[in-house]
């Protein structure tokens, strides 16, 4: 959910803005050190990939459709800090070009969809992957569960911001946003697993990309 401007209060926007700026600054430093600025073209193309993948929608229930978010996939394929950079650039472009999400609310959107969802999914994935002894099953299970949590937690963070801003009452916003995204998250999980199994079958070398 890309929050537009006017839905969150200035203190919430300021706090999440500081979180987003700090995370991007750290991500720039980490990725500079690990892969160097030389990989910038690749990261740009992959950001465009996330953008294009989000355009592919699938029918949900009752004529509505959902689309893939990709934070978990980016985190698993590229490592969390690179994923933070890529997801943030997708969100900035969506904001300034397509008005998908507000300018003052950009910090909140980056916090929800490029920070919370990336790190939640990455550490859940990593934990399950190691628990299963780095097997194929562990990788796919971890990716699926991580992807589900990434969507649910991004939605909860969004609901939480709306509640703090006084735009919606908590007793309805949190169960509604959380509930809907528990269903949407299943789609995200299934797609992430399918993408990863295809990548493993065709170019398994790409799974060793992780830079952090």
């Amino acid at each position: 959910m890309h929050l537009p401007d006017g839905f969150i209060s200035v203190p919430v926007a300021a706090t999440t803005g500081v979180i987003a700026v700090t995370a991007i600054a750290v991500a720039v430093r980490v990725t500079n050190k690990k892969i160097g600025e030389k990989q910038v073209p690749m990261m740009g193309v992959l950001a465009a990939f996330i953008f294009a993948a989000q355009m592919l929608n699938f029918p949900v229930a009752g004529g509505t459709s959902g689309h893939f978010v990709g934070a978990a996939l980016a985190a698993i394929l590229l490592g969390p800090w690179t994923a933070v950079l890529i997801m943030s650039s997708v969100l900035v472009v969506q904001c300034v070009i397509f008005q998908d999400g507000g300018l003052l609310a950009l910090g909140a959107n980056i916090t929800n969809m490029a920070i919370v969802s990336v790190f939640i999914s990455y550490y859940i994935y990593k934990g399950i992957y190691l628990m299963f002894g780095k097997s194929r099953t562990g990788l796919l299970a971890g990716a699926g569960i991580g992807a589900w949590f990434s969507v649910v937690f991004a939605a909860l963070a969004c609901a939480f911001e709306l509640v703090i801003s006084g735009t919606s009452p908590w007793e309805i916003a949190i169960p509604a946003m959380g509930g809907i995204h528990m269903i949407i998250g299943v789609g995200e999980a299934l797609i992430t697993v399918a993408v990863l199994s295809l990548v493993m079958a065709t170019r398994s070398d790409l799974l060793k990309l992780q830079v952090t």
């Binding site: 910038v40 990261m43 740009g44 650039s89």
Partner: peptide, 8 residues
Amino acid sequence: VFVQIMSF
């Protein structure tokens, strides 16, 4: 870096 990623 961030600006260049967006420009690509």
